[in-house]
């Protein structure tokens, strides 16, 4: 997993379903590993495979015409559990960007902590992205973090997206939160000295 994210041009995989929860992204029975690797195999497990572990032909990840590092999904993506395994599964499968019109809070943090960029766009733009992929499964999507822009390459339609400045710096440079917090050690000890209680 590369820790740096700057700029990407890729085709995209569409999953136009709303409220995709973390149990769909990675069902709980696959959370037994004690490392961060290998979760991609079980990404969207129950949508991808039937009870006999045969790929379901109608699910988009089993359709070879769709591929790429960008996942495009309906609103309220990543709701449900706080399990970071959902972000690990997406990263392990090879996704670098998830585009949706709305993200669940904890998922957004987890994605960013794993150097996956959640790009929140308007409902209108999301529809345009879905339409572009429907018209051409190989349609390219461009994501420019520095300028906070997402673009449908063929049509040139673009929209800007929000990301907080701190997280942006982290992604562009490959820093993580622990590096920052560890640098605050003296402040943390000073704060502890001011607490009136020992709990």
């Amino acid at each position: 997993m590369s820790k740096i994210f700057q700029h990407l041009v890729s085709s995209a995989v569409p999953v136009p379903i709303e409220n995709i929860d973390t149990d769909q992204i990675i069902p709980a029975r696959f959370l037994k590993a004690t490392t961060r690797d290998g979760f991609g195999e079980n990404l969207f497990r129950d949508w991808r495979f039937d009870a006999n572990n045969q790929p379901k032909a109608d699910f988009v990840l089993n359709n070879p015409i769709y591929s790429g590092k960008v996942l495009v999904a309906g609103k309220n993506f990543g709701c449900g559990s706080s399990r970071e395994h959902a972000a690990w599964a997406l990263a392990d499968y090879g996704f670098k960007v998830v585009v949706s019109s709305f993200f669940a809070d904890i998922f957004k943090n987890n994605a960013l902590n794993n150097f996956i960029l959640p790009v929140q766009v308007s409902e209108t733009f999301l529809d345009k992205v879905f339409q572009a992929i429907e018209a051409d499964p190989e349609a390219k999507i461009e994501v420019d973090l520095e300028n906070q822009l997402i673009r449908i390459v063929a049509s040139g339609e673009q929209e800007s997206f929000d990301i907080n400045a701190y997280k942006k710096t982290c992604l562009l440079n490959g820093y993580d939160d622990i590096d920052y917090l560890l640098s605050l050690r003296q402040d943390i000890e000073k704060y502890e000295g001011t607490r009136a209680f020992n709990f």
Binding site: S82, E84, N109, N110, N113, D176, D177
Partner: peptide, 10 residues
């Protein structure tokens, strides 16, 4: 509130 594993590490 609930947190992810990277945050558990923090």
């Amino acid at each position: 509130f609930g947190i992810g594993t990277s945050e558990v590490e923090q």
